[in-house]
Amino acid sequence: MKKVFGKPKCLKDAVFHYCPGCGHSIIHRLVAEVIDELSIQEKVIGVPPAGCAVLAYDYFDIDIGESPHGRGAAVATGLKRALPDRIVFTYQGDGDIAAIGTAETIHAANRGENITVIFVNNGVYGMTGGQMAPTTIIGQITTTTPGGRNEKRDGAPIDLSEMLALTTGTVYIERTAVDTPKNIIRTKKAIKKAFRVQMAGLGFSLVEVLSACPTNLKLSPVQANEWIGSTMTTYFPLKVIKDKVGKLGALPHLE
């Protein structure tokens, strides 16, 4: 028998510290698989956020530069401008990108920085213990919205990807999820396309991935994934939000 599924080459032999059922682990693997398949391990530089995924550097066997909370897009801008022929991606959570780092993200997108953003949306601040995130949905109970998120008091969940799509510099934005095998496969395709957009020099690409945080949702991993499909996607529908790739010329053929 032939091995058809195993650990990607550009992940180190480290055990993920993430909680059982955490979407980060799946998304890490997908990013790693894409890096392997595009043969860019020697050219890629990752910028992890503050938050659970800050420890990404323990797992990826690639060059990694840590960013202050929310500033991933600015740090990546510096890296990419200094090294235009390398592949630079940020990996950011919802609090990182859609609250504290909103300005950096919107302006990097608007400048059309040729970087790729992996935006993990799990609707909650994970590492700090389950506080309300900018993407927490109405009624969702968190440690800082004990009665549920109230639109009048807390505002509605913010749809950063749609906002970014309005800027001219963005080329490709898709929202996917890692709640089912089908969606995981779709997510990988989206991540691969986003990297290829950068490799073709087309501009800013972003994949928003709805991801389960069972620990802070206080659900089992299976229930948390069901919640994404049944509830979270009503606020954050899975779709290609923007795709200018065709207009800019097709991506180069992959071997």
Binding site: M1, I26, R29, P181
Partner: peptide, 17 residues
């Protein structure tokens, strides 16, 4: 490989004939 695809911890290897 559905099990391996959803496994967050890459704990599953899949083999085929």
């Amino acid at each position: 490989a559905l099990c391996a695809i959803v496994c967050p911890d890459i704990a599953i290897e899949v083999y085929r004939e």
